[in-house]
């Protein structure tokens, strides 16, 4: 399934966030959205998920305008993993993951079966089957993130949108979750669009990096080509070096120091 975004504008009140983003994501790609805090990457993700309405511009899913699709139609095509899930007292893992079937079965179809084959499959695929009857609040951060991936898997979509899936996790669980995403993508032939905070994660796990600055796409391409000291300076405001990780063949960023606001605006004029 492909996603075509054309000159998307969005603002929170009078504060413009996106100023004409155009981007096409092909079936099966793993795209990482990167940029500074507040550059609009999470907003872009929420717009693609249909959770926000753009001020202008269009988003097409496989040629269908997103706006013409109902919530359930959208949810059958795309699953979203938000940064956090508000606590629900007493909610068990199975109860949560089962809800992935809502878009396919509807409110009445959900009445009859306590647990479905999709639920079990999703639990197994994400390695949380042993936690199925635990209460969500009692899980560790890493376990919880796996469970939320299980929910997305149970939704049985072709597209997976992730908002910082590794946030608030320690380094081991960061790797675990991102590896799991990569495995899921291969197992299910998913298109993955993910906001990633860590540039090294983006370079290592994504095939394509899209960097946002000032509400537009500043750079877009294979991490090995896009990740340069110039990008570090322009998009993240740091002076640094980029080396090649010999084991994985991917670039690694070594930021050295933050650039002053003055030199940043110079870059902006030059860019």
């Amino acid at each position: 399934m492909s996603i075509a975004i054309d000159s998307l504008h969005f603002s929170y009140g009078s504060q413009p966030v996106l100023n004409g983003v155009s981007l096409t994501v092909e079936q099966g790609e793993f795209v990482a959205l990167v940029g500074m805090n507040g550059c609009g990457k999470s907003t872009l993700l929420r717009l693609v998920a249909g959770l926000l309405t753009p001020s202008s511009g269009s988003i097409m899913l496989d040629g269908d305008p997103l706006r013409s699709l109902s919530r359930r139609q959208v949810a059958r095509r795309m699953a979203v993993l938000h940064q956090t899930l508000p606590p629900v007292p007493g909610l068990t893992v199975r109860q949560l993951v089962r809800q992935g079937g809502y878009a396919h079965r509807g409110p009445l179809g959900m009445l009859w079966e306590a647990s479905t084959s999709e639920t079990d499959e999703a639990l197994a695929l994400t390695g949380v089957a042993h936690l199925a009857d635990r209460v969500l609040d009692t899980l560790s951060g890493g376990e919880r993130q796996r469970v939320r991936l299980a929910l997305a898997v149970a939704q049985n979509t072709r597209v997976l949108l992730l908002d910082e899936p590794a946030a608030h996790l320690d380094v081991r669980h960061q790797l675990e979750v991102l590896t799991l995403v990569r495995e899921l993508r291969q197992a299910r032939d998913l298109t993955v669009v993910s906001v990633l905070h860590e540039l090294d994660h983006a370079a290592r796990f994504a095939e394509r990096v899209v960097a946002l600055r000032e509400g537009v796409v500043w750079a877009d391409g294979d991490p090995r080509e896009v990740m340069t000291p110039a990008l570090l300076a322009e998009v993240f405001g740091v002076a640094g070096r980029v080396v090649v990780d010999e084991l994985h063949g991917t670039p690694r960023c070594l930021p050295d120091h933050a650039l002053s606001d003055h030199s940043l605006s110079d870059l902006s004029m030059g860019g």
Binding site: R71, A79, V80, Q99, P107, G109
Partner: peptide
């Protein structure tokens, strides 16, 4: 029942699962 279950973790959650 299913509407209530899907709604209780949050609006974004419900919307992503297909319930306005």
């Amino acid at each position: 029942s299913a509407v209530l279950a899907v709604l209780s973790p949050g609006d974004d959650h419900a919307a992503s699962l297909g319930l306005p």
